[in-house]
Each structure stands twice: as structure tokens, then as C-alpha cells.
Design a protein around this nucleic acid. Structure first.
Lengths: 260, 260
DNA sequence: CACGAAGTTGCACGATTATGCGTGAATGAG
DNA sequence: CTCATTCACGCATAATCGTGCAACTTCGTG
């Protein structure tokens, strides 16, 4: 029995049954519990599952803990979200991306703001229900569950009918040469379409995204008109981007943390 | 039985049935009441539920307004939702309406169901993220905030490209002569389009909707192929509908709470 | 082929965690 | 008020965990 084969089996079993019991599995495969537990430990280290006493449970990048991810937003994302929310002027039409940072924008919008928000994220749409003055345009399509956003041809087509003022884009990488990148092919297409539909594209750049590169290219760096970072980021890192004519907004923590 | 697996089960059961009885659950899972009580104590310490004498109730303190409404769904809606969920066969394409009853359908879907769900409700879409086997098609459009569903011409147009097996429709009135009615003009149009896109239209008819009439007509009663009511409803009231060839499903509260 | 490095596996040990039972206190119904 | 149920706590038992260690395989190198 190959190690990697066994690990694959563990993940498959987990997906099917929703739980792994170390003892049962060791009996079934005729290998010691130690080996199973070692596997579980390493798979957990890779974030592929979550260890619990007696076995493992799914950690599901795509599943349940999306809600959890929303609520454990880092301070950095909150700060960036607040800065982005402050940039929105009354009666503008803005596009909000999916992702945890964009949720923070929604949460920091003034409750009396009158504006139009376009989004392909049902999470954002639900978040904005309480904002009576905000008109929400929901982009439909096939739901990509990892990020909880609509993707696919119908989404692209509907985006093509919109002209917005500003698009607040979330990425997993922004790099002076590689441009804007993300981890999913479909999502990259949608982000490109959204960028094309807005006069300005502002990238929400929490520190780990700076100079990072992910597999799928959204657009060259020239598509970016602005980016928001925290004031913790060294100016040196931002120099490349500033030289390309990108407006850089440095967001700082207000003395009072004000979550919505 | 893994500890964390059991706790997850407790939370799921709580979400579905709205209450946990320690004694029943211990009997069902063949473990001591002590263990259940310990679980409840610790889950309560994490704020995930609220302890009461004999068991536990959902804790909905920090939840949003709309989220709160969802969790106070009446028993009647839960019962109807469960019956509707049970009608969905593997690999079917079903349309779920917006509204609190439809949310109950989503919550009662088996977690391993493989099917496609079409919806214009971002709430439903988010609810289904945890169902790995369910493909979600989100219908976009302008967000009508009262019901939290997408409406308008783009929604209608996108619906027109879909052919589904079954549409589970929520209404505010179902009446033998006045037909299906609801409280919003735009929403009525969308519901009509959804009905036209499905081979069968099944109305979720909680008791206060029966023989009620609202301002805007969705469709004549002939558009309905089935309806789901609770077994509390008098047969006399349903006679009109049965005579029109509508299949009536009488849902009852199960004597035994049977979590997956 | 010989050799060593790197990786994998099973076992032993003490430490940690989960479970069930007994006891007496607390709670809610009649 | 009375009584049955439910609860919380401590304790004993059993299961599970992490670590270190030795035996073994696989692979690359000379």
C-alpha cells in the first residue's frame, strides 16, 4: 500500500462519510493506527482535514468554514475594507468582489449611503440587505463554492451589460510583472470581465498578496488603477507599483475599531 | 462515534428541528445522557447553543436580522420544508423559491444529495454551500430586499434559459378562483417565469396561505401540479384543490427526530 | 555491488482526553 | 409542598495521542 495512495483514500473516505475513525480505518486497511494517525497529522498540517480526538473531520476549504472564515477576518482585512468603503461616493455604481475582504467593505458601508452595488457574491448581497439606500444588482451564474461566487458564461454575459464606476477586486497575487493572479481559472475570467466593466479597478491588497503569484492570470498590472494596503507595508515594496501610475491608498487602523 | 462528529450532529439537529432533548438523543445514539449533557455544556460555553432544562435550544444572539427570522421559522414551515426536501430525487434539477419556507427545504436536503438547485435567492445559495454534491445555479438581477431575491428583466431572461423538473413555489395566497398571488408586482413576474421553466410547480402552502388572496397574480391555479400542506389542515379546505387535479401532499411532524 | 541517506512503518511509553457511574444538589410539574 | 427528573461534580476506566526508537525499504552514488 503506497503512502500517497493511502492518503488519497483517506480524503476520499472523508468526503464520502464525513468523518474518519482512526481505529476503524486501521482495521480495514490492516495497518497500524500509528500510521493512520501520522497520515492524519500530516494531512491536517496541509489543511486538507481537521484532526479530532479519535480521527478526523473535513476541514473543507469550500464548505462550512466559509462562514467561519468570514467572522475571523483579520484586522488587516477589516482595515482595508473600511478604507475601501470610505472611498465610495454617493450615487456611484461600484462592483464588489467575493471573498472575505470584500465582505468587510460591505460591513463598513455607512448605513445611510445611497449607491448601487453590483456583485456576483450572494454573501455580499445578503450582507447589504440592511442598507436601505443601497441598490444591489446580483450577477447570476453557476456557484463556485470555494469562494461562494457566481461564475461561468452567464455571469460573464450579464457583467458585459454593466458599466460601473469602481471595481474593488480581491486577488491572491499582485505582482509587477506577473500582474493580477488568482487560484481558480473560472474566477479569473469573471474578475477580468468585472475589471473591464468598471472605469477604475482597485485591488484589495493585504500584505500576503503583494508580489505573490497564483496559477491563473486575471489581467496585466496595467488594468489596475489603484490599490489599498495597510500602513504597515514598507514603501519599498510599493515603489514598483507606484512607478506604474497606480494610486496607492495606505489604510490605517482607526483608534477605535468599529465593526458593523 | 467521534466526539466532534457527535457535536456536529447536535448542531445540525438543532438547526433542523429547533430543539434538542438530551434523553431522546442519548437513546437514539446509544450513549449515556451524561455525555450528551457534557456536549451541550461545552457547546453552550462556545455560544453555539443555549442550554435549557432537558436539552438545548438555538442561541441566536449575534445573528443578523434576516438570519434571526430564518431561525424562528414556525414548526409548520419546517414540516413543509422537510416534506419538500424528501420529494427531490437524485440528479433532478429543481428550482427553490426565496422565502423562509424554501430555506427550510435547503436545510433539510440530505447532505450527500447529488442534484442541481436553481434559485434566485442568495440566501438559499449560501445555505447550499455546504452540500458538496449540489450544484447551485444562481439567478441574478436586481435584489428585491423585502424577500431577498433577484427580480427584474435580467432575472426573467436568465430563467428563460432553464428547464427544470420541479419548482417549489412560495406564495402569500393560493385560492381556487383567484389562483396564486403574492405581495409584490415584480416578484409575481419572476415566480411566473420560474413556474413556466419547470415541468412541475409545487406550492408550499402553510395554512395561512390557503384561500388567501394578495394583490398581484402570479398565475391561475391551473399552473399548479402539486401542493404541500400539513396534516392539520381540514380536508374540506383542500377539496377544491384536489378536484382541480392538484396532487396534495400532507406533511406530518415525524414522531422521531431522525438526523442523518 | 556496496554503501549511506532519506523515508516509512510498527512498537513501547507516559501524557492527555473521553466516557460512564455514583452521589447529592437543583429544577420543574402537579 | 412533594416527587420525579435533570443537573453538576468527582472519580475510575478505557481509549487515544505524541514522541522516541529500531527495523525495514527505497533510492541515489561511487
Amino acid at each position: 500500500m503506497l503512502t500517497s495512495h493511502r492518503r488519497k483514500l483517506i480524503l476520499d473516505t472523508l468526503r464520502k462519510t464525513g468523518a474518519i475513525v482512526a481505529k476503524d480505518l486501521s482495521a480495514e486497511l490492516n495497518i497500524s493506527e500509528d500510521t493512520i494517525r501520522r497520515d492524519l497529522r500530516e494531512l491536517a498540517a496541509e489543511g486538507l482535514l481537521q484532526r479530532v480526538h479519535g480521527g478526523a473531520m473535513p476541514s473543507s476549504p469550500a464548505m462550512g468554514n466559509f462562514a467561519a472564515r468570514l467572522n475571523v477576518a483579520t484586522d488587516e482585512k477589516r482595515i482595508i475594507g473600511r478604507a475601501a468603503a470610505a472611498m465610495i461616493r454617493p450615487n456611484q455604481v461600484v462592483i464588489l468582489d467575493g471573498g472575505t475582504t470584500a465582505v468587510q467593505i460591505a460591513r463598513h458601508l455607512p448605513s445611510d449611503l445611497r449607491a448601487t452595488v453590483v456583485t456576483h457574491s450572494p454573501t455580499i448581497a445578503v450582507e447589504l440587505v440592511e442598507h436601505a439606500g443601497v441598490e444591489v444588482i446580483l450577477i447570476g451564474g453557476k456557484l463556485f463554492k470555494h469562494s461562494v461566487v457566481a461564475v461561468g458564461a452567464p455571469a460573464i454575459e450579464n457583467i458585459g451589460r454593466i458599466r460601473a464606476d469602481t471595481y474593488f477586486m480581491g486577488v491572491t497575487g499582485i505582482h509587477a510583472e506577473a500582474g493580477l493572479t488568482t487560484g481558480d481559472f473560472e474566477e479569473a475570467h469573471v474578475k477580468r470581465a468585472l475589471s473591464a466593466a468598471a472605469a477604475e479597478t482597485i485591488v484589495l491588497a493585504s500584505s500576503e498578496k503583494l508580489n505573490a503569484v497564483s496559477p491563473y492570470v486575471i489581467a496585466p498590472i496595467s488594468a489596475v488603477t489603484g490599490m489599498i494596503v495597510t500602513d504597515q507595508v514598507k514603501s519599498k515594496i510599493l515603489a514598483h507599483f507606484a512607478r506604474l501610475g497606480i494610486t496607492i491608498t495606505r489604510a490605517s487602523a482607526s483608534p477605535k475599531t468599529k465593526p458593523a
